[in-house]
Design a protein around this nucleic acid. Structure first.
Lengths: 142, 142
DNA sequence: CGGGATCCACGCGGATACTG
DNA sequence: CAGTATCCGCGTGGATCCCG
């Protein structure tokens, strides 16, 4: 029920992550973890794809939809709304006819690209090892 | 239907993430994106918490459960199995009575801590901005 | 202690139709 | 074009019981 806190490993980014987490968790304030909220968004099915798409340049709604064919308009709208609400994306409406709407990353949104890119890099770099591990694991079960 | 590919932004980690993604997407091989699979895991509700818990030291099953009170044993087992299958976690059984099982990060699992810590750091660092953005956004709607 | 098996509720998200 | 509204299937995951 109470959501766990993911501690700030800021002061000791690498080795300190676990201790920072533990200290945070044991600290008084045990409800509502802001970091968890952010991580949930990252892990969201579409958020990262939209952010990466907008990293290149501003896009209109339909452009994003064409870039990510297997997202429904419903989910694209919802994802964009949440990103806008979080201050990651700026929505700009042009009173043309038919109306056009442009989405672009804010500076906050762009700042996310760096850690995101490193995570993607890690994934791409280690994916062969993961695949091998899976094959080995599955082989041991028939 | 066909899953999108998140391109390797390896060659140009920061600015190149979008172009790399686009080139990857436009390339021949359009089904099955390995990176998406990894990102889905990261975004998984429990995976990161378990990894962070194990970052401190090896833990027994019940220890992890105590560290993350709001995970069910079912989900903890499932999360640990997937991490084991992906070669991120090593499961070691000791034939004591009652039996004890120890989980520890593999080197692959530990290598994930670095990008993960940076993401957590970003989240902690920018969370106030996100909260402010949400308040401002919600205020504009009543 | 460390799980597996089963049942079931709920929310995510796709499909579809409609609007400004 | 850029959404909104409604309906609904299905997977995720909690609760519970059982086992070695």
């Amino acid at each position: 029920m109470t959501r766990l806190h993911v501690g700030n490993a800021l002061e000791a980014p690498l080795d300190g992550i676990a201790e920072g987490y533990r200290r945070w968790r044991e600290s008084a304030n045990t409800d509502q973890c802001p970091v968890r909220g952010v991580l949930d968004r990252i892990g969201d099915k579409w958020t990262t794809l939209v952010v990466i798409t907008l990293a290149e340049r501003p896009h209109r709604f339909s452009e994003i939809h064409r870039s990510i064919p297997d997202i429904s308009r419903r989910m694209l709208t919802q994802t964009l709304r949440e990103l806008e609400r979080d201050g990651m994306v700026l929505r700009q409406v042009f009173p043309t006819k038919p109306p056009s709407v442009e989405y672009r990353l804010t500076s906050l949104g762009e700042s996310l690209l760096k850690p995101l890119a490193e995570l993607v890099a890690w994934a791409a770099e280690n994916q062969p090892r993961i695949v091998n591990a899976r094959v080995a694991y599955d082989a041991g079960r028939g």
